[in-house]
Design a protein around this nucleic acid. Structure first.
Lengths: 194, 194
DNA sequence: TCTCAAGTGAGAGTAACTCCTACATTCGAG
DNA sequence: CTCGAATGTAGGAGTTACTCTCACTTGAGA
């Protein structure tokens, strides 16, 4: 393996900072934990903290599974319908996570939800997801990239998941039901929607 | 009219602060304008600034038209289909705005889009919109409030608008097209979407 | 082992807030 | 009209996230 001592040390420091930070957040709360305290717990100087993370916010928001999810989605064969591809990649990524990883991820989501400052910062991520999905949709549907209807559809997918989840975090069942309903064209017992 | 001198003064101060702030933001940029400078331009002390607005962010984000839009939507008769009700309330609110108001609102949107910190803070607003719409949907469709499918649909509506808008801000045409596409059940030229 | 690049610590500085206190202004009751 | 109570404001001190700079150390490679 090509990682020298220097690189390994950096990785370890980064992991330590994050672990200590999340521990402190859980113990005393996000707002009540200062960067100085995190630095002390991780045995580094405050200035070093900011060399590893651009902000206290980002330390929480950096999502290890997001790039994995993206890759899983892009690896789905092109002849699989979009929603199926999406479902399969979610199932695969969550399926491959260990129980501890799942716990940690849940706790992280809960933290994000409970701190307005963190919650707010997720819009950008959402927008990126829509863009990405829109490309996948356009490619599968024979539309040019950037196509308005593909984007509207991608937005609808992400939006319906968001709406369905509401307060519950990360329920694959609810996501599944929402996607079923969307794929069926929102069948509201014969009542017009338009 | 029941407003005493005190109340009128407060309203005027608030308006002055916001006007001066937006002017400075336009001239020098959001990040380059300090609260102290805004306070000076509005002829108040920095501490007074924070009595009028909880943060520099919120000064920009407070949306005068949001409550108007909400009211317009809720005033639509119950027998009008949801998407039509939504369209009509948007048309009405935008139609009643003066050209200057429209200009100012556009500029505000542009500012929000261009500053990551501001852009991020809109997620909460989005979520509120979804909740509200979901109630309207449930009521019209004879579903109980909080119904999963109503929420999924409401999310899809908001999401598709978001996806369709992309970089362009506030194009009623694009919104209209996205809603048409959604109402028709995403007709992608006979290709399966599920 | 020597040298250079990369990483770290420490300190000073800025800006958004928060909290407190003393002073000014408006309001309502008599 | 006047006085006391409520309400609002200015000013200052303090906290915290973050930035920049500079001197020092440590690991990488010849």
């Amino acid at each position: 393996m090509g990682l020298g001592l220097r690189e390994r040390k950096k990785l370890r420091t980064r992991a330590t900072i994050r672990a200590q930070a999340l521990r402190l957040f859980a113990e005393k709360g996000y707002g009540e934990t200062t960067v100085e305290q995190i630095a002390e717990a991780a045995d580094i100087s405050p200035s070093t903290f900011f060399r590893y993370f651009p902000s206290k916010e980002q330390l929480v928001l950096v999502d290890d599974y997001d790039p994995i999810m993206i890759r899983a989605f892009q690896e789905q064969p092109a002849d699989v319908p979009v929603l199926t591809a999406l479902r399969r990649s979610m199932e695969r990524v969550f399926g491959e996570m260990s129980p501890e990883q799942l716990d940690r991820e849940m706790a992280r989501q809960k933290l994000i939800r409970s701190v307005p400052e963190l919650r707010a910062a997720q819009l950008d991520e959402l927008q990126r997801t829509i863009e990405l999905l829109a490309e996948g949709v356009a490619a599968r549907m024979g539309r040019p990239p950037g196509d308005l209807e593909s984007r509207a559809f991608a937005g609808a997918v992400v939006g319906s998941i968001m709406g369905a989840l509401g307060d519950d975090l990360l329920s694959l069942d609810r996501i599944g039901l929402a996607l079923d309903f969307l794929a069926a064209g929102f069948p509201f017992d014969d009542r017009e929607v338009g």
